[in-house]
Amino acid sequence: MHIAEGFLPPLHAAAWGVASAPFVVHGARALTREVKANPESTLLLGASGAFTFVLSALKIPSVTGSCSHPTGTGLGAILFRPPVMAVLGTVTLLFQALLLAHGGLTTLGANVFSMAVAGPWAGYGVYRLLKKSDVPLMVSVFFGAFFADLVTYCVTSVQLALAFPDPAGGVAGALAKFGGIFALTQLPLAVSEGLLTVLVMRLLMQSSKADLIRLGVAKLTASREATAR
């Protein structure tokens, strides 16, 4: 989902930057508020950022015969709500833009919008919807992470289609092309990300149940995970 440096026309690059900035600023406030109110959250916040660091560094083969990487933003969005993830995702994208020439500074706004804003919000929305209905927690977590991952790549496809409409098929034609490159490749990776997020959430259930209860993810009573040990 990394749009390479210089690969968005200046106007598009600026527009996505303007669109992302308020989310990141709001996220930074939410992050400092969380750390001040609950200093014990710092460690788990670090772990959520670390999860994104690991997952977005792993390029995994996919059914389309190309490689792509998960985003790891679903976990943090579920634990700390999406605004916090806007910051953690931006840090990851900055690291990659500055050190790895992966993504870029001019395309940072667009990449932040897809990976650190749209993805986390979509995943969080799905997670909340499922949590309200009567499905097991881990099912909500799986689909939350799945959609955070997939929506990120769909947004990237839209961003590129808007900037580079197909000479013949227009924006829709370009969307089909970029969607074929990104979204299709991403499907199995989104499943992988869902499974890995469930795995980490299960480990957190064992190790940090109190934190999960405070964050509203786990309930005091209904936990087969805790009793099964």
């Binding site: 749009i3 390479a4 990104f182």
Partner: peptide, 9 residues
């Protein structure tokens, strides 16, 4: 198995 990012470019 090239990267999807590069394919988009």
């Amino acid at each position: 198995f090239a990267g999807a990012d590069g394919q988009a470019e």
